[in-house]
């Protein structure tokens, strides 16, 4: 009796949570197919025309390209630096190791606005005199600050799970440092690299705050949305872009979590 009512209550609560999380997204998704330009409830009919218009909108196209560029750049930097940091922290015991670990993770907890203004000040006062101007490069650097954390955490978690003596065994069997990396370390961390990379990409792709401080004249997708949200005749196109963003972010996160799950199960069923 009691378990039955508890079960029902739990189901309701779960349903409520899901509705709470996804109803707003559903509304946006619906408006993206709305016949009328004005958002009123209920919608009067369905159309795909906004999707076509969005696809041919040069502003949108440009923003998407810039976003992809920024996300790829930031992910690449994070992949190299985050992985190297994880390898170092995992393999060597050195003075200040815990501190370094903490400092690498900290940026993801820092308010974006602080990171943003700090980067802005640094770029403006320290790097601009040397000819580095605000634009794609500064966006990539800004995004890399939090992407590194994701890579670092993913790779480190994987390294910690595999037995420490595995790399030693490789060296013991005659493999030099490079062979050990190529045949042992890389294959063992491959999926962690991929999962971390996808997450980093998704994080960078929809980042707003740090981007506003570092973008200069460049417009990424989130910045484009912010700018066009207040223009009533652009609103349906904004909705279309928003729905695309939801899908674009969901796919990598889904794949990443699948990869993480599968690689956790070493035993074949």
């Amino acid at each position: 009796m009691e378990t039955r009512s508890a079960r029902i209550a739990l189901r309701l609560a779960t349903g409520f949570t899901l509705a709470f999380l996804y109803l707003p997204l559903a509304v946006i998704a619906l408006y993206a197919f709305n016949q009328k330009r004005i958002q009123t409830w209920p919608i009067s009919g369905l159309t795909l025309s906004w999707w076509q218009k969005a696809f041919h909108n040069p502003g949108v196209r440009d923003a998407v390209l810039r976003s992809v560029e920024a996300a790829l750049g930031a992910t690449l930097i994070a992949m190299v630096l985050g992985t190297l940091a994880a390898l170092a922290v995992n393999r060597y015991r050195f003075f200040g190791r815990e501190t370094i670990s903490f400092l690498v993770i900290l940026p993801i907890a820092l308010p974006g606005i602080v990171t943003g203004m700090a980067l802005n000040a640094t770029f403006r006062t320290v790097f601009e005199p040397f000819g580095v101007s605000f634009g794609m490069f500064t966006i990539i650097v800004g995004h890399a600050t939090f992407c590194i954390v994701v890579m670092y955490n993913n790779v480190l978690a994987r390294l910690r799970r595999s037995a420490g003596s595995i790399e030693e065994a490789s060296g013991d069997l005659g493999a030099d440092t490079w062979q050990t990396f190529r045949y042992i370390t890389l294959p063992l961390t491959k999926t962690a690299l991929l999962a971390g990379g996808l997450l980093a990409f998704a994080l960078s792709f929809d980042e707003v705050i740090v981007t506003t401080f570092t973008a200069g004249a460049v417009q990424t997708v989130p910045l484009w949305i912010l700018q066009n949200l207040s223009r009533p005749n652009q609103l349906p196109i904004v909705n279309v872009v928003a729905v695309s963003l939801i899908l674009l972010s969901a796919i990598p996160v889904y794949i990443a979590s699948r990869i993480a799950q599968e690689s956790g199960i070493l035993r074949r069923r």
Binding site: S162, A163, S165, I166, E168, S170, D172, G174, D176
Partner: peptide, 17 residues
């Protein structure tokens, strides 16, 4: 280690999974 003519059997075996 890779320059020495010795090999080790590890306590946890350290097989490459």
């Amino acid at each position: 280690p890779f320059d020495r003519d010795v090999n080790t059997v590890f306590q946890d075996y350290a097989l490459f999974p």
